[in-house]
Amino acid sequence: MIINNLKLIREKKKISQSELAALLEVSRQTINGIEKNKYNPSLQLALKIAYYLNTPLEDIFQ
């Protein structure tokens, strides 16, 4: 099972779900679904998340 630290990292960087969704060009519901482990992001989306949060991919999804 993948450990998902997206919410923790996003909140630590003081970025809202809506702000991150806008940067990634996805819906806020997509971010919410990823954070609640209801949706697994594509590799492309996971890499974009890591880029915009300036955090290694391995720290977000373990």
Rank of each mutant, 00 (worst) to 15 (best):
N54D: 14
K14F: 08
P41S: 03
N40A: 15
K13M: 13
S18M: 13
Q44N: 11
Q62C: 12
I9E: 04
L6I: 07
I60G: 01
N4G: 05
I49H: 00
Q62R: 11
P56N: 08
I15F: 08
K12A: 14
Y51S: 07
A46P: 02
I2E: 07
L6V: 07
Q44Y: 12
N54K: 11
L6D: 00
K38D: 09
S16R: 06
I31E: 00
I15G: 01
A21V: 03
A46F: 05
E11D: 08
I34N: 02
Y39S: 07
Y52S: 05
S18K: 13
L20I: 04
N37M: 13
Q44P: 09
Q17N: 03
P56S: 08
K13W: 09
A21D: 00
E25D: 13
L20S: 00
I3E: 08
I3Y: 09
A50H: 02
K48N: 05
E11F: 07
E35V: 02
I49L: 07
Y51R: 10
I9F: 10
I49M: 06
K7E: 08
I3P: 09
D59M: 13
M1K: 12
K12V: 08
L24S: 05
I34E: 00
Q44W: 12
N54I: 05
N54H: 09
R28H: 08
K7P: 03
K13Y: 12
N5P: 03
A46K: 15
L6A: 02
K13C: 13
N40S: 14
S18Y: 11
N5V: 05
K12Y: 10
G33R: 15
K13V: 07
L6C: 05
I49A: 03
A22Q: 11
L47N: 08
A21H: 02
Y39E: 07
K38I: 14
P56Q: 07
K13F: 14
N5Q: 07
S27D: 11
T30I: 15
A22F: 10
I2G: 10
A46L: 09
S42P: 12
L57T: 04
T55G: 02
L53F: 07
Q62D: 08
S18L: 11
N54R: 09
N32L: 09
Y52Q: 06
L57E: 03
F61V: 03
G33Q: 15
Y39N: 06
K36S: 14
M1H: 12
N4M: 05
F61H: 01
L8N: 12
L24H: 00
N5M: 07
M1I: 14
N4E: 03
I3D: 07
Q62T: 11
N40V: 15
K12N: 10
V26T: 06
G33E: 15
E35D: 02
L20C: 03
E25N: 15
A46S: 07
F61K: 01
Q44R: 13
Y39K: 08
P41T: 05
L8H: 12
I2V: 14
K14Q: 13
S42G: 10
K7D: 02
Y51W: 11
E25Y: 10
A22I: 10
L8Q: 14
N40T: 15
V26H: 01
V26Y: 02
N32P: 01
Y39G: 04
L45K: 00
E35M: 03
E11S: 08
Y52M: 10
K13H: 10
L53C: 03
L53K: 01
D59F: 10
A22W: 07
G33N: 15
V26Q: 02
F61S: 02
E25L: 12
E11T: 12
N40K: 15
K14Y: 07
L45A: 02
Y39P: 01
K14C: 11
V26C: 07
Y51I: 08
N32R: 15
G33H: 15
Q17V: 14
N37K: 11
S42I: 04
S16D: 04
N54F: 05
N4C: 08
N4I: 07
E35G: 01
K14S: 09
I34L: 08
K7H: 06
K7S: 07
M1E: 10
A50G: 04
N54E: 13
K38S: 10
Q62G: 14
N37Y: 11
A22Y: 08
R28M: 13
E25R: 15
L47A: 09
Y52C: 08
A50D: 00
Y51C: 09
S42K: 06
K36P: 02
L53D: 00
S27H: 06
N40E: 13
Q44M: 10
N4H: 05
E58H: 13
K12D: 07
E25S: 13
L47E: 08
I9T: 06
G33Y: 14
N5C: 11
G33V: 09
E19N: 08
L8R: 14
K13N: 11
R10H: 02
Y39V: 13
L47T: 09
R28D: 08
S42H: 07
S18G: 12
L23M: 14
E19H: 12
N40P: 13
S42C: 07
N37L: 09
R10N: 01
L45N: 02
L6H: 01
P56R: 11
P41D: 03
N4P: 04
D59I: 10
L43C: 14
L6Y: 00
N37Q: 13
T30E: 08
L43M: 13
S18E: 14
Q29L: 11
S27W: 03
Y39C: 12
D59Y: 10
K12R: 13
A22H: 10
L23W: 14
K48F: 04
S18I: 11
R28C: 11
L43E: 08
S16L: 05
I9G: 01
I34D: 01
I31G: 00
Y52P: 00
I31A: 00
A46T: 06
Q62F: 14
Q62N: 10
I34C: 02
I60W: 03
L20Q: 00
S27N: 08
E58Q: 12
L8Y: 12
E58I: 09
E11W: 07
P56F: 06
F61W: 09
Q62W: 13
K38R: 13
K12Q: 13
K36V: 09
L53Y: 02
T55V: 12
N54T: 07
L20V: 00
A22R: 15
E35Q: 00
A46W: 14
S16Q: 05
L23V: 13
A46R: 13
L8V: 14
E35H: 03
I15M: 15
R28L: 15
P56Y: 05
P56W: 04
I31N: 00
R10F: 04
K7W: 05
L20W: 02
I2D: 06
L20F: 07
T30K: 07
A21G: 05
N32H: 11
L24T: 11
M1W: 12
L8G: 09
N5K: 07
F61R: 02
P41N: 01
I60M: 05
A21Y: 03
L57Q: 04
K38A: 10
I3V: 12
A21K: 01
L47P: 00
A50T: 03
P41Y: 05
N54G: 12
N4S: 05
Y52D: 00
F61Q: 02
K14V: 04
Q29K: 13
N54P: 02
N40D: 08
A50V: 05
L43V: 09
I34P: 01
I3T: 12
I3R: 14
I49E: 00
V26N: 01
Y51K: 09
N32C: 08
L20Y: 02
I34A: 01
E19I: 07
S16H: 04
I15Y: 07
L57R: 04
L6K: 00
K7C: 07
Y52H: 11
K13D: 02
T55A: 08
I15V: 09
Q62M: 13
R28T: 14
L24A: 09
L6E: 00
K36Y: 07
Q44L: 11
K48P: 00
I34G: 01
K38N: 10
N54S: 11
I15S: 01
E19G: 09
R10W: 05
E35N: 00
N37E: 06
Y51P: 00
S27Q: 05
E58R: 10
Q44A: 14
P41M: 06
K48T: 04
N40C: 15
E25P: 04
A50C: 06
Q44E: 13
R10I: 04
Q17K: 07
D59P: 02
I31P: 00
S16W: 03
I60P: 02
K38V: 12
L45V: 05
D59E: 14
L57K: 04
L57Y: 10
A21T: 03
N37T: 07
K12I: 10
L45F: 07
Q62P: 15
E19S: 09
I31S: 00
Q44D: 12
I49N: 00
K48S: 06
Q62H: 11
I15K: 05
N32T: 09
L47I: 11
K14A: 09
G33T: 09
Y52E: 04
D59H: 10
K7L: 06
N5W: 09
I31H: 01
N37W: 09
